[in-house]
């Protein structure tokens, strides 16, 4: 059974068909790339998968479970976590608290236990701290645990967003242009991080990216979008040598 199975997914905004009959199958443990020129509908597909938009037609199945049309909160609980193209951290809270917010549905205790500082508060907070610090260690952020998230340098903010997404214990991780705004050094480090996340957490990853170097170095399979519909799909090297793809990216 594929981890993610999307069939005939479509959505229109007014007269614009933003995504047209999108199909994809991602196997467990795969690192899958979604590329395409600006405005091709890549982020719209992420928003459809995570429940921000409800599709006009088509279905999304995660690990066999139909999640089409569910709410954003429910889809995260079902196992899809994401990062954003423009980073969305909880800026006025510490790095550690950002990850602990990601753990919100993993370690639960009622609000009253927190107000009265009951034993269950200390028990769960201790577990949360340990788990969050472990995650921060993986991303080499443990020395920044007490820093405000908005005070982190750009590259670390990207990492923190991935750490926060992983804290929700997802089955599938969606990364929306993780290398956007990074210099070549930071991008190389990011490639290592993504590869490590995949190994360490046995994670299935779907990635939107513009940086061809990054895509060709880590994705095994690719889908190329253009004007909302699939232009090419398959193994990375094949797809990147496809004349249609070269035409869409570079013009004739």
């Amino acid at each position: 059974m594929p981890m993610l199975e999307v069939t005939n997914l479509s959505i229109s905004f007014g007269g614009l068909r933003a995504v047209d009959n999108f199909n994809v199958k991602i196997e467990e443990g795969q690192l899958y790339g979604l590329i395409g020129p600006n405005g091709a509908g890549k982020t719209t597909i992420f928003n459809l998968l995570t429940g921000v938009y409800k599709p006009d037609s088509g279905s999304v199945k995660l690990d066999g479970l139909d999640i089409t049309g569910k709410s954003v909160v429910q889809i995260n609980k079902d196992g899809i976590a994401r990062t954003f193209q423009n980073i969305r951290l909880f800026g006025k809270q510490s790095v550690l608290d950002n990850v602990k917010i990601g753990l919100h549905n993993i370690h639960k205790y009622p609000a009253i236990a927190g107000v009265l500082k009951l034993p269950s508060y200390f028990k769960h907070e201790k577990q949360m701290n340990e788990e969050a610090m472990e995650l921060l260690k993986v991303f080499d952020l443990e020395s920044d645990a007490d820093t405000l998230a908005s005070n982190l340098p750009y590259g670390k903010q990207r990492k923190l967003e991935i750490a926060r997404a992983l804290a929700t214990k997802p089955k599938l991780l969606l990364l929306d242009e993780p290398a956007a705004g990074m210099n070549p050094n930071e991008t190389m480090e990011l490639v290592k991080t993504i590869a490590f996340v995949r190994e360490h957490f046995k994670m299935t990853i779907l990635l939107i990216e513009h940086d061809m170097k990054l895509v060709s170095s880590i994705c095994e399979q690719l889908t190329v979008l253009n004007f909302g519909s699939v232009l090419a799909q398959g193994d990375t090297t094949e797809v990147l040598n496809n004349p249609e793809v070269i035409k869409a990216y570079l013009g004739e």
């Binding site: 921000v52 954003v72 995260n76 976590a81 969305r88 917010i101 919100h104």
Partner: peptide, 15 residues
């Protein structure tokens, strides 16, 4: 406080 800082991200982590 997460709601205050970013509503979209709050929902995206299942809150």
């Amino acid at each position: 406080k997460a709601v205050r800082d970013n509503k979209i991200a709050t929902e995206a982590v299942g809150i």
